[in-house]
Design a protein around this nucleic acid. Structure first.
Lengths: 355, 355
DNA sequence: GTCCGTGTAGTTAGCGCTAACATTGCCGAC
DNA sequence: GTCGGCAATGTTAGCGCTAACTACACGGAC
């Protein structure tokens, strides 16, 4: 049997999706030009660029990301460190991060940080994974030991939703003080006189910002700050239960309760019902964060929505840019960004009841 | 000018992490042998393997995943399709999937399925992303149109926690009937006579399985099935509120309420409190799923834990295997696996109250 | 001994892309 | 003109790894 002559060996390449070479052939240019078009480089004539774009569309070409990161010498691995048990926060966060990471074909590694672990041990785990940068959602974003260790390793990092942005890390936040101010202002505008506040865990930096926003709104409205209307909570449902009991047992109970998160607001709502009070007809209850529990309980909670996905996306972008800058030896300038919150009006707030 | 001979050009390679070549040099073998050790191939002598392992450890070598998937011609992209608004489910799921995908350097794309979108439109989106296989958490895993379209495209897929596994898809489930049976059995063992059941959304396949488990337990215990003790819900908090009101308004109210998910159990708990009933002293309330709300509300709910992360991990494994099999032209056998659930005892269940 | 089979290793040639350099053509400056 | 400079494109050589082949040693069958 004689060989067919042609296809003597041609190794591998059985599957075949279109490659740059295919596109180049169809467009009548070199593969390099195709690459330039894909990477939006400038030195390509408009006519050429259009031809290539056309060919890409015709072949339904999608670049091979493995080849890109191999050839380009850039493959970034971003770690998402979390200790936060709030699953809803995490999933929003993950979705945002994955979108952005997918677009820049960066790899994401999710690492859970148990409390007792030393920051050094954690950093060692990151090294083992060859991590290039780190995403820090709350409350980890405020852990000084962790921040220090990461800084010492020269890893770019971004604090998400921190109340205390450090100067060596990127940060993407919302303005918690202003958000709490806006919510309190909203309650004032609905006619409420006695507005109570349930604080968050005093160890988290955002807690004091939220309290401060509440205070400023009252101050600016010329209201007295009744100390008995500010009760300490720690972000748990249970603490919300206790705080609401305290508030509703007052001789002159509040007509509105602003809880520093939705879990505590949900608890307050449960306590109000237990006291035979209708929400919002007899007492207004509002929360913060817009976690799933806000729409689970009835009545659904009026609350502050943080753009978690957007924050995650933006944080990831910053990290990818930082990795690139570092690779090029450029000094990375640190960005602190503040995104907009949203006041979400649902069913749990109403006008001040007529006495 | 004569060339210096040696370092004439040597392009690129500035960064340098250790490569197979470095390991090979140190171990005194060829790069191919190193590759064999990494990929656990058999044709390597133990002595050689140990040398290579030693060198890997010494250099702290980590294979370059981009190069691996490029050279190996295998790069899998797995889509996670979700319509489920339950963020907590999603985040557990994502963490499990990411772990497994990271280990096999598969890429994960998360696609949200809005309800009105046609299955075809969705499949087109998958094509655009060059997706190789699809993960289907509930309730999408039971969408016949979607399943059909994916099957037509020949995409491997896995139904997670479905109540109705189809024969052309992999499936990873828990035994909902048996779990509901176990929970009901537990309530019987605590002495309860009048055990109520709040059903889930009747459109989801798991709902009837859970009801069936409840029924079987009562039957086997020789109890009558009181029809007034089974109330329809639809998995929402609000439906749980209504169902619990109905149940507690009965002339002979139940001493235990088994809700088909935690949201409804939390609602039932709120209603019980509103009725001045202590949980669990006067009425026992148990849920299902072990979502975060189970540990948020007080008292914390006794519930059934599904191993969501494990299911996601296993499902991902099955898909990666299926993609590999397909690539090799082997017919993929379909796997249906059933993982263990766990009965999580917390604070919301107690013995039958003494009349 | 020759032969073949088998188990262990090494060689070669890409996977699909892009960095770095090379080339071409065109324009204005001298 | 011719030369430098620039802008648009092409060429070459890998990125780090592994598929597919080759090479060789050993060992038993004939």
């Amino acid at each position: 049997m004689v060989e067919a002559g042609q296809t003597r060996k041609r190794k591998r390449r059985t599957q075949s999706a279109p490659t740059v070479a295919d596109v180049a052939r169809l467009a009548g240019v070199s593969p390099m030009t195709v690459s330039r078009v894909i990477n939006r480089e400038t030195a390509v004539m408009d006519a050429t660029r259009d031809k290539v774009r056309e060919a890409i569309r015709a072949l339904d070409y999608v670049p091979n990301s493995a080849a890109r990161s191999l050839a380009g010498g850039r493959q970034s691995r971003i770690a998402l460190l979390h200790s936060n048990p709030s699953a809803s926060y995490l999933s929003e966060f993950l979705v945002g991060t994955l979108q952005e990471a997918g677009a820049s074909d960066a790899q994401l590694v999710v690492e859970h940080c148990a409390a007792p672990e030393s920051a050094e041990a954690l950093a060692a785990r990151l090294d083992a994974h060859r991590v290039d940068a780190v995403l820090l959602p709350p409350p980890l974003c405020d852990d000084p030991a962790l921040l220090a260790v990461l800084q010492a390793r020269g890893l770019p990092m971004v604090q998400i939703a921190t109340g205390r942005a450090v100067d060596f890390a990127h940060a993407v936040t919302i303005d918690d003080e202003r958000a709490a101010y806006a919510m309190t202002r909203h309650l004032i505008d609905r006619g409420h006189e006695r507005i109570a506040f349930i604080t968050g865990d005093t160890n988290q930096t955002v807690s004091s910002l939220r309290l401060e926003g509440y205070r400023r709104a009252l101050r600016e409205a010329g209201r007295a700050l009744a100390p008995d209307l500010v009760v300490e909570g720690d972000f748990t449902y249970r603490s919300g239960l206790a705080a609401a009991e305290t508030l509703l047992a007052l001789a002159l109970p509040p007509t509105a309760i602003f809880a520093s998160n939705d879990d505590m607001a949900a608890a307050a709502s449960a306590v109000a019902h237990r006291h035979g009070l209708d929400v919002p007809r007899q007492v207004t209850i509002v929360g913060y964060d817009d976690t799933p529990i806000a729409t689970t309980v009835w009545p659904e909670l009026t609350t502050i929505r943080q753009p978690i996905q957007d924050m995650a996306r933006r944080g990831t972008q910053l990290l990818i840019a930082a990795i690139e800058a570092k690779r090029l030896g450029r000094a990375a300038s640190v960005h602190h960004e503040c995104l907009d919150f949203e006041l979400v009006l649902r069913e749990s707030d109403g006008d001040r009841p007529h006495d």
